[in-house]
Design a protein around this nucleic acid. Structure first.
Lengths: 181, 181
DNA sequence: TGACCCATGTAAGGGGTTACATGATTTG
DNA sequence: CAAATCATGTAACCCCTTACATGGGTCA
């Protein structure tokens, strides 16, 4: 899947270790693509097999050896081919919708309770994303800076996604708990 | 995960076979939770082990045996407990955002091309959902009909989700292809 | 005759999570 | 003294996808 391409992107700016990649992922795009260190090491091993990346071992005094990975020509070509290929259809899989399905059996009350909890979580996330937006992007970054543009548009997506979710939750809680009381 | 609970919901209205469940899923909530027949059979086997469902075998002349599953008391209790429990945090995992990350390496052109294709697909989906909405829901279903309400709110969610995506794609394509031309 | 419907599965592999393992160094 | 940081992994398990398997009945 796409984790492979996330790692290729990160590596193509500068060679990095699996540890570096894990930390960088967690610091920068955690909200938009999450991966554990186990996954990162597995993907690096697979991409090495595929010839997309290679590494040099650096011996460190009093520390474990460090494997510094870099992207090969084949890796760059794979990234290019992927970037223009058809985006695989994304299927909505949202547990909230399944809770709704359970209402005929379990009633609205527990569902509304879990939705209210979820709305609080979503609002917290939204304010986090909003503050990121206002600190990093006073204006739309120029087209000439693709890295900044990518971050700006991802943040934009996250804010719109969670705003939409919050609106839907509010409307739904209202419908489920309002009229019958 | 939630497939288990989807199946419990479907079974609690009337006993069904694995085949019935697969077909019903594909006909009704395909847009919101998809599962292959292999998954359905596996979940049924696991839920039988757990004691959440049980089945009766019906011999059919000139057809394979049919296993008619029904929900047990323990299954109903599991469904209730789940419906009010905390909703696990949903992480955004959207390949579009990773394409953006690749722009510094591969340029904007292939990314924009794949986004335009995606926008067409999203618009097609949206018009499908809109027509479902206008044929089934002339007005908001009453609170007393939870099955209808669940379908209404799911459709609502789908329409808002894909509208948001379409807007974002349009904005993004504009930003990536507009100013530099 | 070939395709689709009914009805059940097995098998292999990809992607992801959680837990476990090691071991020195730095920080509170 | 305990926790966090650096740095690598293994193992077991869950969920999901794709391909393969069987075999009669219906319909164009």
């Amino acid at each position: 899947m796409s984790l492979r391409h996330v790692l290729l992107c990160q590596l193509s700016t500068a060679p990095k270790s699996g540890y570096d990649l894990t930390v960088a992922l967690d610091r920068s795009i955690r909200q938009f693509w999450h991966a554990s260190h186990q996954q990162v090491y597995r993907e690096l091993a697979k991409m090495t097999e595929l010839g997309w990346v290679d590494f040099e071992v650096e011996q460190q005094p009093k520390k474990p050896d460090l494997k510094r990975y870099y992207v090969t020509q084949a890796g760059l070509e794979a990234l290019s081919a992927w970037a223009g290929s058809e985006i695989p259809a994304l299927k909505i899989k949202n547990e909230m919708l399944i809770r709704l399905l359970a209402m005929p059996q379990v009633g609205a009350a527990p569902v509304v309770a879990s939705f209210e909890q979820e709305l609080a979580r979503v609002n917290a996330l939204l304010s986090e994303l909003s503050s990121m937006h206002s600190t990093y992007f006073k204006s739309v970054p120029p087209n000439g800076n693709p890295t900044q543009l990518a971050m700006y548009l991802s943040l934009q997506y996250g804010i719109e996604y969670w705003s939409m979710t919050a609106r839907w939750l509010q409307q739904t809680i209202g419908l489920l708990s309002g009229p019958s009381h």
